[in-house]
C-alpha cells in the first residue's frame, strides 16, 4: 500500500460535484470593481459559492479560477487554508465545538466524545443523512461560559453532554440575531 501513489493527474467526473449558476457568477463579478485585481476577490467569491452550494466543490473551484483568472490550485490553496470553507457537502446543521483551553478544562473533551457518539461522525465530517456536520474551532469567544458549542447561528453556553439532545432539537438554531452586513450580500 505504502508504495502506491494517489493519482492526482485526473479526477472522475462525478467527484467534481456541482458547478456555479450564471446568477452566482454574476454576483461574484460584481465584486471585482472593489479590488485592484480579480484575484483579490477570492474570499468573497468563495463565500458566495459556499452559500450557493453549501460547500465549495471542485467544479466550483475550477469555475472560480476561470472567473478570477488564476490557476485552480490557487483557489484550492485558499479553500483548504480556512476551515470554514468546506470541500465536501456540509450538513444542514453544523456543530462547532470550541477546543481552546477554557472549554477544554471545563469538559469540552467529554462533550466531543458525546457528539461523536451521538452522530457517529468525526471532525469535519457529515452524517450520511446530510443532517449534521461537526468540527472544532479554536475559540468561540465565550470563555466565560465554557464549554460552548455553536449550532449553525446559535451559541449554546455551558453545555453538558446530557444537554446534547435538547440543543440539537433547538428551534432557534437557525435564527439570526444579528442581520448580516449589507456589505456582504450587495457589492
Amino acid at each position: 500500500m505504502s508504495w502506491q501513489a494517489v493519482d492526482r493527474t485526473r479526477v472522475p467526473e462525478e467527484q467534481l460535484g456541482p458547478g456555479l449558476s450564471e446568477a452566482v457568477k454574476e454576483k461574484i463579478r460584481a465584486f471585482f470593481s472593489r479590488y485592484p485585481t480579480k484575484q483579490a476577490a477570492v474570499l468573497p467569491a468563495l463565500h458566495i459559492a459556499q452559500d450557493a452550494l453549501g460547500y465549495v466543490s471542485l467544479r466550483a473551484m475550477k469555475e472560480l479560477a476561470e472567473l478570477l483568472e488564476i490557476p485552480p490550485s490557487k483557489v484550492m490553496d485558499v479553500v483548504t487554508f480556512y476551515t470554514h470553507f468546506w470541500t465536501h457537502p456540509k450538513g444542514r446543521k453544523t456543530l462547532l465545538l470550541c477546543r481552546s483551553i477554557s472549554c477544554e478544562l471545563l469538559g469540552a473533551g467529554k462533550l466531543k466524545d458525546a457528539i461523536r457518539q451521538r452522530l457517529g461522525i468525526g471532525e469535519h465530517e457529515t452524517t450520511p443523512d446530510g443532517e449534521y456536520s461537526f468540527m472544532t474551532e479554536e475559540c468561540l469567544a465565550a470563555c466565560d461560559h465554557a464549554p460552548c458549542l455553536m449550532v449553525n447561528e446559535k451559541m449554546h453556553k455551558c453545555v453538558r453532554p446530557e444537554d446534547l439532545e435538547r440543543i440539537l432539537a433547538d428551534a432557534d438554531n437557525d435564527r439570526l440575531d444579528i442581520p448580516r452586513s449589507d456589505l456582504f450580500d450587495a457589492p
Binding site: R10, V11, K62, S73, V75, M76, F81
Partner: peptide, 22 residues
C-alpha cells in the same frame, strides 16, 4: 503556470496540484 500549491494549514500542510490539473 502555478500548478503546485501548499494545501491545508499548519501541521496538515501538503504540497499538491489541483486534482485533474497536473
Amino acid at each position: 503556470a502555478g500548478e503546485l500549491r501548499v494545501v491545508d494549514r499548519g501541521n496538515r500542510c501538503e504540497i499538491d496540484v489541483f486534482p485533474g490539473v497536473p
